[in-house]
């Protein structure tokens, strides 16, 4: 089993959580984690692993911290 810390920001916390530890039997992509959390792809504006900007296809490793930010575009 591998563990990933998932941090959600801004509107993504609504009906979800701020931070949670998830366990996976196989290394998931960010897209798979988002799907599990019912976060639509268009709400994945910034995905960072251990503070580094990565693509949604990025495969997570044991001990990673994934942070997800939604698109903010108003003025």
């Amino acid at each position: 089993m591998m563990k990933v810390t998932v941090k959600l920001f801004a509107t993504l916390r609504h009906n979800r959580f701020k931070v949670a530890e998830h366990e996976y039997s196989a290394a998931p992509t960010i897209l798979a984690v988002a799907e599990e959390l019912a976060i639509p792809r268009e709400e994945l504006a910034l995905t960072m692993v251990n503070g580094i900007l990565v693509s949604v296809e990025h495969v997570l490793q044991d001990g990673d911290t994934l942070s997800i930010f939604p698109p903010v575009g108003g003025g």
Binding site: T11, A45, L46, P71, G73, G74
Partner: peptide, 24 residues
């Protein structure tokens, strides 16, 4: 570009949440 290039829509989550007085 880093902030927005992945965005496929022209508006962000503000289309749902709007904006109150203090954020701007």
């Amino acid at each position: 570009e880093k902030l927005y290039l992945r965005c496929t829509e022209d508006r962000g989550m503000e289309k749902i949440y709007g904006n109150p007085s203090f954020t701007p």
